[in-house]
Design a binder for these strands. Structure first.
Lengths: 333, 333
DNA sequence: CTGAAAGCGCTAACAG
DNA sequence: CTGTTAGCGCTTTCAG
């Protein structure tokens, strides 16, 4: 039923070695032989079994992409671009959602390692190094996305979260806001953005909200709860919120509606990611853009280089940009 | 570096056959031997190479999930559930976006076939059977999602699109709307919804918009353009729109804003999918819910059954439900 | 230029 | 109960 290399060899009156050589364009093969073999291959519609060649040390042309949650548009868009780019190299990507659970990441990594994937893109944002070390122990290339790994020699592609947080906050301050709250989650990228936020506040003689993270997850729900929570506990009410992703910003906007606060008249909000949500919500969200396509492109490119033997470790930092829409009010007039 | 079955055998003073048996729980193995081997496995952190066992005819524990566009929230949510469910069977899923291009589907299918995936879930919604036939020729299980394949013996899971279209339209009619337009795309599911729409109209003595599809793609953009287009060309302006997915509905709402039409005061809109967008847009979208989680769950379950030798072909039709929110006005008071 | 043969890591008869 | 052995389908020296 399934035709293999022997069938081709037989039909072409050559040895399997010859067939293998014409398939892989290795060794020297006479023109007539090559043509003959190719004809037979076409005729029998022969497709080499990639598992078998993988067993012989060839690539599996598959990469693992590990992320927290595919339902988060930031990640699904990222995944889309990763997949696109990978496919341009004839690679497939198996996507794994960890659901923010470390054990799942390790489980997926183990499984994919057993399946001999050629490389990993890790966007799960975990603090633990278990998975990374497991992969490195097998000498498999990794690139980390939106995360750092101090003290590790790795490929990284990310934005400068500190800087982005600083600029988002400054943007608000420049527009006259003084009471600025932050909705963040306790993960590395958000902590960096918090640092940027706090420094921007202090630099302008303002006092940052203390290092208290209200959001458990980066969801609409948690953004919704966080804003209400902050409004409730603050003695001096914030006039602006910096939400560390668009989902939470969306939730924050919803919360404002519930509290009968108008955005941006009463409360200004700036988000993060510039995912599709930013254009959908009402009012349209002013937000910090992450160049997802570039992130994905660079990540895959780096991974491919590594897979093809490039042992250098690169860190690529991409630019962010504030996309002005309708959720920030200028208090200075 | 990488430990294999021989290393384990040697360290445990047994043959590789014995190791294989304890791993796979086949044959009879003495308790002490089993323990010994298991200890060594743990100690050496041995993980069987799944490619090798796949070569021997075992499963790869990988399925291919082919969809049009991972950036469409309906599909990313679906993918999320598929992945979740698959992972509960210890399966990985490689996700492929066809971008609505038939050739890409075939290309992906070929590639994954060469990689010996155990099964496919096809949600790409194509009309062509090439890919399906290719897969069937290899005797690999498939389940089709959100699509039909008349005359084919296949596993199917979908909703009743005709019925859903009929009910969505009736919902509008019951609320007094008479000029109802539809925004659809020329794919099977949308045509079915159109049929339902048209029948509901006629049944109530109304005249359906003619079978003219304005949307090239199921995107926000195309929904935006379609509504404007329809408003421009209609002699009697519609009071309600039935958009065949939430993305297009979102675009339609945006278009209304641009045309200075209020939703739902001037124009009512009903969407389809009940993706996350429906809750985000303003006003919140009344829409027909597709039970994505169930679709995914059933699809994976069916596929697993098939992979495990169940040769029956099942068709599962899931229920839809109209989720009432704020975009439909009741004209009858 | 082409083929024979070894072997990748594993499973599955079949002996013992 | 355990080991030997023959492959799965392919790549890759190494002879010829």
């Amino acid at each position: 039923m399934k035709v293999n290399i022997y069938d081709v060899a037989k039909a072409a009156n050559v040895s399997i070695a010859t067939v293998s050589k014409v398939i892989n364009n290795t060794g020297r093969i006479g023109d007539k032989t090559r043509k003959k073999v190719n004809d037979v291959i076409k005729e029998l519609d022969y497709k080499p079994n990639l598992m078998a060649s993988a067993l012989m040390g060839k690539k599996t042309c598959t990469i693992g992409f590990i992320l927290p949650d595919l339902a988060n548009p930031f990640f699904s868009e990222l995944a889309r671009y990763v997949e696109d780019m990978a496919s341009s190299f004839n690679y497939n990507v198996v996507i794994c959602s960890t659901d923010y659970i470390t054990e799942k990441e390790e489980m997926y990594v183990s499984l994919l390692l057993q399946k001999n994937v050629d490389g990993f893109i890790l966007a799960s944002g975990f603090e633990s190094f278990e998975a990374i070390e497991k992969i490195q122990a097998m000498n498999i290339p990794i690139v980390l996305v939106a995360r750092n790994a101090p003290g590790k020699q790795l490929n990284l592609v990310s934005i400068n979260d500190y800087d982005a947080g600083f600029r988002a906050t400054s943007y608000l301050i420049e527009r006259g806001h003084q009471q600025i709250a932050i909705i963040a989650r306790n993960i590395w990228s958000n902590r960096e953005r918090y640092r940027g936020y706090a420094d921007a506040m202090r630099k302008n003689g303002l006092v940052p909200m203390d290092e208290y993270y209200y959001a458990k997850e980066s969801t609409i729900q948690d953004g919704f709860k966080s804003l209400q929570q902050i409004m409730k506990v603050s003695s001096i009410k914030p006039t602006a919120f910096f939400a560390c992703n668009d989902l939470m910003a969306t939730g924050a906007i919803k919360a404002c509606k519930k509290l009968n606060l108008n955005v941006p008249e009463d409360i200004s909000i700036i988000g993060f990611d510039n995912s599709i949500f930013a254009q959908i919500v009402e009012p349209a969200l002013t937000t910090v853009e992450q160049p997802q396509r570039e992130i994905a492109t660079e990540a895959v490119q780096l991974l491919m280089n590594a897979i093809n033997g490039d042992n250098a470790h690169q860190t690529i930092t991409l630019k962010t940009k504030i996309i002005e829409r309708e959720t920030v009010k200028n208090l200075i007039l």
